[in-house]
Structures are given as C-alpha cells and as structure tokens.
C-alpha cells in the first residue's frame, strides 16, 4: 500500500515537474518575432530622443502615443506620427505573434497587458507614461 502511495506521489511529482518546466518559458524565438524585434530596435534610435523630450509617452495598453508634439522641432514633427503608428503596428503584431507562437491566440490581450506594465517599469527616468487619466513622469 505504501508503495502504491509512493508511486502515486512520484507520478504526481513527475507530472507537476513537467508542467512547471513547460510553463517556465514562452516561445519567443520565431522568425516573425525576430523580424519585429529587429524593426523595433532600429526604430528605437529615432524614438529615444522623443521619449526623453516628453514628445511621446508609453500608454497603459502597451502602445505609445504622441503626448506633446510641440516638444519636437518643426522639421521633425512630420516623422513623429509616422514613427508612432509604425511602432504601434509592430507592437500589436508582436503581441499577436507571441500569442500564436505559443498556440494560444487568445492570450494576445494578456500578453499586451503584461508588456504594458513591463515597458513602463523599464522606462528611463524622465520618460512619460499614462497613469490614470493623464500622463506621469518617471
């Protein structure tokens, strides 16, 4: 009887261990995600001064938005909205691709929420993020 219990425990622990191992990582190494990352990384060089100047900020839904275009010289204002919409298109795709790469398209919203918090947590001091109804400075 004891043996039976023991073997049951072993089975349980094996199964649990398997589950933990499976849940430890999300698949993020697909070509689609890599392409999106590369595109966002290249764009970040252009966006970075706009974050610092307070022209754009991180939204609470894991996107970015124009906060104050007047913080940018006139000559660069035209590219601002284009960069923001391109970045948001990439971000939306990224959340979708992570969800589908892990076989759970329905996770997209949760992934987006998770990213929203992490972008803000990792933002440089001085950058703006949406908090409540307005913008807050980190």
């Amino acid at each position: 009887m004891k043996k039976l219990l023991l073997s049951l425990f072993v089975i349980v622990s094996i199964l649990t261990a398997n589950w933990v191992a499976a849940a430890a990582d999300l698949e993020v190494n697909t070509p689609a995600i890599a392409a999106l990352k590369a595109s966002m990384q290249a764009r970040h060089g252009q966006l970075s001064p706009f974050y610092s100047a307070g022209a754009i900020g991180l939204t609470k839904d894991g996107m970015i938005a124009v906060k104050d275009a007047t913080a940018v010289p006139l000559s660069q204002r035209g590219s601002l909205s284009g960069l923001v919409s391109a970045e948001n298109a990439d971000r939306a795709n990224l959340y979708k691709e992570i969800a589908t790469a892990n076989g759970h398209a329905e996770w997209q919203g949760d992934i987006q929420n998770t990213f929203a918090g992490r972008w803000i947590d990792k933002a440089q001091s001085g950058w703006f993020y949406q908090s409540g109804g307005g913008w807050a400075k980190k």
Binding site: L74, S75, R77, G78, S81, G82
Partner: peptide
Amino acid sequence: GEVFWQPLY
C-alpha cells in the same frame, strides 16, 4: 520662416 502643417513641412 518654417511651417509645419501636418503632414507637410
């Protein structure tokens, strides 16, 4: 003088 009139500059 310079003018920005979205999206023209």
